[in-house]
Nucleic acid binder design. Structure first.
Length: 488
RNA sequence: CGGGGCGUGGCGCAGUCCGGUUAGCGCACGGCGUUUGGGACGCCGGUGUCGGAGGUUCAAAUCCUCUCGCCCCGACCA
């Protein structure tokens, strides 16, 4: 079948240029981040992918704790009637609910919904717990799985079950709730930019795109390698909608009964997909050092038997020194694969830095460092053995920054401004990317644009200076700016 | 739910049109040996209810009927 095709060619990934979604699937599967499950639309997160998720989770959790939040856990099953209490919320979620109708061999009196999100059950509990202004604010987060009956699924980006965190807070005033919603959006931005090396556009969701039941939704939007947008985290100011639906009230200082103001905010395993798509190249994954399960892989090389043990000893000592310095390091001493094979494999799996050590290096008391973010010889450098720990640490920081800079440059290069709808369609069809426009259109206009071009409003960006311009679609004067893009 | 495609060892496929030996190839996997600075090689070995059910036939992966599952494209979405 494959006669005349070399081994290296057979094992190559499809290029991103050629077939972006096939590239994505192959990277996720072959890097062993995840695998398909026997149930359509679900996925298995494999140890390597889960280790990445654990690092994401820990980085976020640290930030949540630092901003005064505590973790708790609410149940998976929610009474059907709860979902129905908030009008917009039901309408938004009804089509994608998984419902349990039977238990213990009997039909249930009231069907149970498998949570698609937990506003309702948490609202119910808050109504019980909150009595006085002294009980506020309530700042709770939970790490959980949720289920949404999706029709078209993609590994990490959209699966029927996914892992996430959902923060749910209750406040005495509208101002405090707004402040909280914005603060958590900043936390997401900080995490994405500093740990995931993913630049984002921060802004508010349009009425069409906002969360079902929210007053306002905020979002951090990232640009994937094919210039599509991915909503990578959201934060909602829920106003008093859920407080009214679940009767969450407190007595204020004047002994008057008031509804609380609530927020919710979430980030999911979807960001794993974002990391893959933002940083990946035709060799595979490129993981930012702060999130990489393995930051450094050591590959020993020898030719003659006599070289084997000096090389392995040096590799072992090196590995131990790095581990003791707190570097997540792996020694690949498998004998059934050649160094070349290992180079390719660890590149596919996105390890940021590789240390090569062979007889020549042992003799010269040095090692070779190879950076994942700079392909081939250009990314290689020799480092004296006794400087290895500081040089590796420094190099990891450099790589972290370099990945961010590359992603940022890419996002900027693919962000366009247009004045007219004709121009909009033209840019979208030929170059894609984020399209920044003055916008005074209606909900109906937004839907029509989506139907005609598949582009949606990703957000009204916060970075707009407020100056006035002409809406590209309606021709009206406005000081609102919107970013449109194709999105996952 | 509408349109298109596919089910053959773990994975990717050939064989199906035109029925006929023991169903074949690559990869992966196991053993032994030689190898190892960018995807090593040799020898040996294991692996199949040909998606399922029924039918036609001396004979079915191949023909017929029914059925199940999956993938891709269109209406919803962290």
């Amino acid at each position: 079948m494959n006669r005349g095709v070399t081994m290296a060619e057979q094992r190559k990934l499809p290029s991103r240029q050629e077939n972006y979604s096939e590239w994505y699937n192959q990277v996720v599967l072959r890097a062993e981040l995840a695998d398909y499950s026997p149930v359509r639309g679900c996925m298995v997160i494999r140890p390597y992918g889960y280790a990445l998720w654990e690092n994401i989770r820990d980085a976020l959790d640290r930030r949540f704790k630092a901003t005064g939040h505590v973790n708790a856990y609410f149940p998976l099953f929610i009474p059907m009637s709860f979902i129905e209490k908030e009008k917009e919320h039901v309408e938004g979620f009804a089509p994608e609910l998984a419902v349990v109708t039977h238990g213990g061999g009997k039909k249930l009196e009231e069907p149970l919904v498998v949570r698609p999100t937990s506003e309702t059950i948490i609202g119910h509990m808050y109504a019980k717990w909150i009595k006085s202004y002294r009980d506020l604010p309530v700042l709770i987060n939970q790490w959980a799985n949720v289920v949404r009956w999706e029709l078209r699924t993609r590994l990490f980006l959209r699966t029927m079950e996914f892992l996430w965190q959902e923060g749910h807070t209750a406040h005495a005033t509208a101002e405090e709730a707004e402040e909280e919603a914005r603060r958590m959006l900043d936390v997401y931005e900080d995490f994405l930019q500093n740990d995931a090396a993913i630049p984002v556009v921060k802004g508010q969701k349009s009425n069409i795109e906002k969360f079902a039941g929210a007053l306002r939704s905020y979002t951090v939007e990232a640009m994937m390698g094919n210039t599509w947008a991915l909503q990578s985290g959201t934060s909602h100011n829920l106003g008093q909608n859920f407080a009214k639906a679940f009767n969450i009230r407190y007595l204020d200082r004047n002994n008057e009964l008031q509804y609380v103001w609530t927020t919710s905010w979430g980030m999911s395993t979807r960001v794993v997909g974002a990391v893959v798509m933002v940083h990946g190249d035709d060799q595979g994954l490129r993981l930012p050092p702060r999130l990489a399960p393995i930051q450094v892989v050591v590959v020993p090389i020898w030719r003659k038997d006599a070289d084997k043990s000096p090389v392995l000893d040096a590799a072992y000592n090196l590995t131990r020194a790095l581990r003791e310095a707190g570097v997540r390091v792996h020694l690949d001493d498998r004998e059934e694969h050649t160094p070349g094979f290992k180079f390719n494999e660890w590149e596919l799996r996105g390890v940021p830095l590789r240390v090569e050590i062979g007889p020549r290096d042992v003799e010269n008391r040095q090692v070779v460092l190879a950076r994942r973010d700079i392909p081939g010889k250009a990314g290689k450098s020799a480092v004296p053995m006794d400087e290895i720990v500081p040089r590796v640490q420094e190099m990891l920081e450099t790589i972290q920054q370099s990945l961010f800079d590359q992603a940022k440059a890419f996002m900027e290069a693919n962000t366009h401004t247009v004045q007219t709808y004709e121009e909009f369609k033209e840019v979208l069809a030929t170059r894609g990317g984020f399209i920044r426009v003055y916008w005074a259109g209606s909900d109906e206009d937004e839907i029509r644009i989506k139907e005609e071009t598949k582009a949606t409003i990703r957000c009204y960006p916060f970075d707009h200076d407020g100056s006035e311009g002409t809406c590209f679609y309606t021709g009206k004067k406005t000081n609102r700016v919107a970013i449109f893009a194709r999105a996952y």
